[in-house]
Amino acid sequence: MPLSSSVRRRSPRNVVVRRAVVTTVAAAALFAGAPGATAAPATQVATVAHSGSPQHTAPAATRPTARTGQYTALRPLAALSAERLATADLVAAAKWGTDSPIDDPAREQQVLDAVAQRARELGADPARTVAVFRDQIEANKIVQRGLHRAWTADPSRAPTTRPDLAEVREEINRINEGLVRALADSSAARTSPSCTPVLAVASAGVVRDAHLDPLHTVALARSVRSVCG
């Protein structure tokens, strides 16, 4: 049998195994609080994959259990966090080849001040909201750094156009509003003793459904580690 034919035959199996691995990584990192989350090596880094491959049925361990209400409350937090991480690809592209640093303390503080104020307006806990958004910001930077490493290692993968950073930040602000609202609406679920495992299941589902690569999977685990509590 030609090698190419053999590779093609094994590919669907490899895709399933890979997805199972990254889903497990996400859940394990969430259970452990992701204390040492770092970007994947540059050789593994890619932008968020949106392949047209068919959806696979979730294994029993990643299906919502009897805690359906809690899952329903927490799933939007994971989904919005993944959506926010997708903007990191655009931010990284906007900064690529410029003197703009990945760390931007002034912008970060603006975001934290804005979400704290919005949380107060919605009757949510501003301190918890700020903690979650600190994680969101750090997760975003994990993706940016990972992509810059990948593009440095292989310039052929680097972006050829530069997004308008102001427009990207408008999109981030929109997602921020959704996240603050989701935090305000999920207080009971987030303070439940079962929050961490249910959030892990919800996040693993997002990893699967959005076809997140290892870099974005690790960043997602980092982004939600202060949600429960």
Rank of each mutant, 00 (worst) to 15 (best):
P35Q: 04
P35S: 10
G36L: 05
A39R: 10
P41E: 10
A42Y: 02
T43S: 15
T43I: 15
Q44C: 11
Q44K: 15
V45T: 03
A46T: 15
T47N: 12
T47G: 13
V48F: 01
A49G: 03
A49H: 07
H50P: 03
H50N: 12
S51T: 12
S51Y: 09
G52K: 12
S53M: 14
P54C: 05
P54R: 02
P54I: 01
Q55R: 14
Q55P: 07
H56L: 15
T57C: 01
A58M: 13
A58T: 11
P59Y: 02
A60G: 02
A60D: 09
A61C: 09
A61G: 09
A61S: 15
T62F: 08
P64R: 11
T68V: 09
Q70G: 10
T72S: 13
L74Q: 00
L74K: 01
R75L: 14
P76D: 07
P76L: 11
L77V: 10
L77Q: 04
A78E: 04
A78R: 01
A82V: 06
A82I: 04
L85W: 05
L85A: 06
L85F: 07
T87K: 05
T87V: 08
T87H: 11
T87A: 08
A88Q: 03
L90T: 12
V91A: 07
K95H: 13
W96E: 04
G97D: 06
G97Q: 08
S100I: 14
I102H: 02
I102S: 10
D104T: 07
D104F: 11
D104C: 05
P105N: 04
P105Y: 08
R107G: 12
E108D: 15
E108S: 14
E108F: 12
Q109L: 13
Q110G: 05
V111R: 03
V111L: 12
V111G: 02
L112R: 09
L112T: 05
D113Y: 03
V115Y: 00
V115C: 09
Q117K: 14
R118W: 00
R118A: 08
R118M: 09
R120Y: 02
R120T: 14
R120L: 14
L122Q: 14
A124Y: 07
A124S: 11
A124R: 01
D125W: 08
D125S: 13
P126W: 05
P126C: 12
A127E: 04
A127W: 00
R128W: 06
V130W: 00
A131Y: 03
F133R: 00
D135F: 05
D135V: 06
D135A: 13
D135T: 09
D135L: 05
Q136H: 10
Q136C: 01
I137K: 06
I137A: 01
K141W: 06
K141Q: 15
V143Y: 00
Q144C: 07
G146Q: 01
L147M: 07
R149D: 11
R149A: 15
A150R: 09
W151Y: 09
W151H: 05
T152S: 14
A153K: 06
D154S: 14
P155T: 12
S156M: 06
S156N: 05
R157C: 01
R157P: 07
T160Q: 06
T160H: 09
T161A: 11
T161F: 02
R162I: 00
R162A: 00
P163V: 07
P163N: 12
P163Y: 10
D164E: 10
L165I: 14
A166P: 01
V168K: 00
V168M: 02
E170N: 10
E171A: 10
I172F: 01
